[in-house]
Design a protein around this nucleic acid. Structure first.
Lengths: 136, 136
DNA sequence: CATCTTACTTGCATTTTGCAAGTAATATAT
DNA sequence: ATATATTACTTGCAAAATGCAAGTAAGATG
């Protein structure tokens, strides 16, 4: 897998070099909120990612230590992906994207309900969620 | 300009459909933090965007009401771009990307200094910055 | 032991990106 | 007044990334 060359020292630019494409944050979203962790689960997500794109994105995210692949102890044919701490720490970014979206687009009701909780105590929500994610 | 088709109702996905590429957030960063507002200023940014890519991204951001183009009253050959409220409201996302970057990469000292202020009172910093941006 | 599932890989067409050069409408200098 | 420069792009083309369909290999299931 060819690495994206670092374009500058800007923190936004460095971040985008890693996950600044149309698919990476959706994969991270699935691992974070849906607990989808197997390759086939990720393939089934609403947006319909192509299998070769999924494979290359997973590899890039793994190389950048955002996710890690583990073997399923029950079955040798199954593996699963999970977020590293570096990946879990993207949660505040995903939350802010949700809040921005809510302001400017119609969004699903179930997500709206969760965002009401977020807005009551953003820092508290994030800390709790990060802790839960770290305990998996 | 061909529109990115909406892939799903997910707020993350809808957001990425608009600004989820390697360049859009860098343009928004420049308009937000450097007050670079002319076409040639944006072209000169550290990452070296190609002129045709800049033109298509600006058009897409304008169509999506993230930025708007105005004429310079002093000069007919000069125009400038500025963020709309919708664009200004991306600030919390950019701030969280900065904070994530700071945790995982070496980042420039001047930005670190600003992030110290951000961490003292995140909500306060964001409110003040949004207000200032809206008054331009 | 045959079929199914999982996790991919490969090949190829289409789309997007990147680079270089070109252009048209002002603006500035001589 | 004319020549040069600047601004804000557009165009053409090569290279890279994406998307789609089909294939594959190892392990699980009936």
């Amino acid at each position: 897998m060819k690495k994206m060359k670092k374009r500058s020292d800007c923190p936004i630019s460095c971040s985008l070099d890693i996950w600044g494409d149309k698919w990476s944050l959706l994969i991270i979203r699935d691992l974070m909120f849906s607990k989808k962790c197997r390759y086939t689960d990720l393939l089934k997500s609403a947006e319909g990612i192509a299998t070769n794109i999924l494979a290359t994105r997973l590899q890039a995210l793994e190389e950048n230590k955002i996710i890690e692949k583990s073997d399923d102890p029950e079955s040798k044919s199954k593996g699963y992906y999970k977020l590293t701490q570096k990946g879990i720490d993207l949660l505040p970014i995903l939350i802010e994207i949700h809040l921005w979206s809510e302001k400017y687009f119609p969004i699903p009701e179930d997500i709206k309900t969760i965002l009401i909780e977020v807005k009551k105590d953003k820092a508290g929500f994030i800390n709790k969620a990060i802790e839960e994610l770290a305990n998996d």
